[in-house]
Design a binder for these strands. Structure first.
Length: 487
DNA sequence: AAGATGCTCAACCGCCACGAA
DNA sequence: TTTCGTGGCGGTTGAGCATCT
């Protein structure tokens, strides 16, 4: 007893479309629109079922379809999104203009999946394959929770994202009605997305703004085992297992930060659903503050997070902030050093350079992902001294980084985090690298703040030598992870 | 040169969500 | 509340082509 077919099969053609059929379909849709797909074939004079027509149009004949090879940026985007969304091809396609879900699915199955496997990365979990070492049957014990995407399932993911969106909508309504954000009810609503497995997964795959992570350590940490706070207030004020610091007793639900939280959650949900962030009504009550990175923000259609100047870290001084950055990175990159998802750190640096902002306004810079042309392979390298008092990051061309790595002795890996960056544009070439790296190195050596720009400009050789010395002095070694061989 | 094998991707199939009746 | 029609989605297939033996 089979399911009734979507249309009457008898007499209907199957298989590849001929140019004549394509022309008929295009002509009809251009004149009349597609209307009811079921009725279309008859009206257009086609011996096809409506489903076949719809597929042909959406996957092949639609005028806004982008043809040709996937760019590196597109590849990168697909990998990033797949780490969060799994096989939700339509949601992924929503972030790649002109690409269809079918095309992305095919590309994943025929290219990207194989490439990840060759790199020793499980294309389902986006984590290193333990079975390479013969531990496959032990993996549930060695790495519980690694198979997050398969465990959760796409349906649940989408359901949670929709639920989270609804939470946000309600929160926005309450905000509009009451003009206040600090009610327990609002906090509960905002916590909805955070508490969902989707939120957890999102946080695992995107390094959130470091300052924010300090406020929400339970969500950003892989190894947090404590009970999840049940409200945002609890979360923000929790001193759980030493992970969290109470920032001057301040609340993230102050007006300024409320905007950030809701904006971020909105973006998070839109990512899951393949829609554009709603630019929710929530913002209307606070107005948009122009930040140095606002142009950058507006150009991306991906996860965004803005932390405003406010209670976060200001009175604690820059070192607290840097320690937070380090803690955040250590949580996300400790272990095997093969995480795929370190984009945001690079993005912070890029945004700093783009906007010529100072460390003081670092909190205004968005971590953003998946945009910008690739001209050089870059790695974001960070280091921190043994007392966790000073840290620095910069982007290194890969060849120089490898050269330094070769020179390294086997010193303890106090930290290591790298990422492949697609963030550098033409204006951020080797000169920028030299400027930044020499400046950072100088500051580190003097025990000072992480700078954004500095007066000293070393040539590449000097810069390389300086960094090599500095890295050894702080006992840091870089770790590498190469996403692809793209040049 | 010819058969075997591998790869790509357009197209199909079945399931599901959703809205209308 | 249930049923039905429709569109959308993800998994899978298989024809056509390329490469290997």
């Amino acid at each position: 007893m089979g399911r009734t077919p979507c249309c009457e099969k008898n007499g209907l053609k199957k298989g590849p479309w001929t140019p004549e059929e394509d022309q008929k379909l295009v002509d009809y849709i251009q004149r009349h629109g597609h209307g009811s797909w079921r009725a279309l074939p008859k009206r257009a004079g086609l011996l096809r079922c409506g489903k076949s027509c719809r597929l042909r149009w959406t996957n092949y004949l639609r005028p806004d379809i982008k043809r040709g090879q996937f760019s590196f940026e597109e590849e990168h985007t697909i990998i990033e999104l797949h780490a969060i969304l799994g096989n939700k091809w339509s949601a992924i396609a929503g972030h790649l203009p002109g690409r269809t879900d079918n095309e992305i699915k095919n590309f994943w199955n025929t290219h990207l999946k194989k490439r990840l496997l060759q790199m020793g990365i499980d294309p389902v979990t986006h984590r290193p394959r333990v079975d390479l070492f013969g531990f496959s049957n032990m993996s549930p014990f060695l790495a519980p929770g690694l198979n997050h995407m398969t465990q959760w399932g796409n349906a649940r993911l989408e359901a949670e994202a929709r639920l989270a969106t609804e939470y946000l909508r309600q929160a926005a309504m309450m905000q509009a009605e009451n003009g206040t954000t600090a009610s327990t009810r609002t906090a509960d609503l905002l916590m909805g997305p955070w508490r969902s497995q989707f939120g957890d997964n999102f946080c695992k795959n995107y390094v959130i703004d470091p300052a924010w992570s300090q406020q929400a350590p339970a969500m950003a940490s892989h190894d947090y085992k404590g009970p999840l706070p049940q409200t945002l207030e609890q979360l923000l004020h929790a001193q759980t297992n030493g992970y969290s610091s109470n920032i001057n007793g301040g609340s993230l639900l102050s007006n300024d930060n409320y905007e950030s939280v809701t904006k971020f959650l909105d973006s998070m949900c839109s990512l899951a659903l393949g829609t554009s962030p709603s630019e929710s009504q929530i913002l209307q009550h606070h107005g948009q503050h122009a930040s140095p990175s606002s142009s950058l923000m507006s150009s991306i259609n991906g996860p965004q997070m803005k932390m405003k100047q406010g209670s976060l870290g200001q009175s604690e001084g820059p070192n607290l902030h840097k320690q937070t950055m380090f803690e955040n990175r250590r949580r996300n990159f400790s272990g095997d050093g093969t995480e795929l998802n370190a984009v945001c750190i690079s993005n912070n640096i890029k945004a700093l350079y783009d906007n010529n902002v100072t460390d003081q306004s670092y909190n205004d810079v968005l971590p953003c992902a998946m945009q910008g042309p690739v001209l050089h392979r870059q790695h974001n390298i960070s280091c921190i001294d043994r007392d966790n008092q000073h840290s620095a990051s910069t982007l290194w061309p890969e060849d120089q980084l490898l050269a330094v790595a070769k020179e390294q002795d086997s010193v303890p890996a106090l930290m290591s985090s790298t990422s492949t960056s697609n963030m550098f544009s033409e204006s951020h070439d080797l000169n920028t690298f030299v400027n930044s790296s020499s400046s950072v190195a100088n500051t580190i050596s003097q025990g000072g703040d992480v700078p954004v720009s500095g007066p000293e400009i070393l040539n590449p050789e000097e810069s390389k030598e300086y960094w090599s010395t500095m890295l050894k002095s702080v006992g840091a070694i870089p770790a590498f992870h190469v996403i692809s061989t793209h040049q």
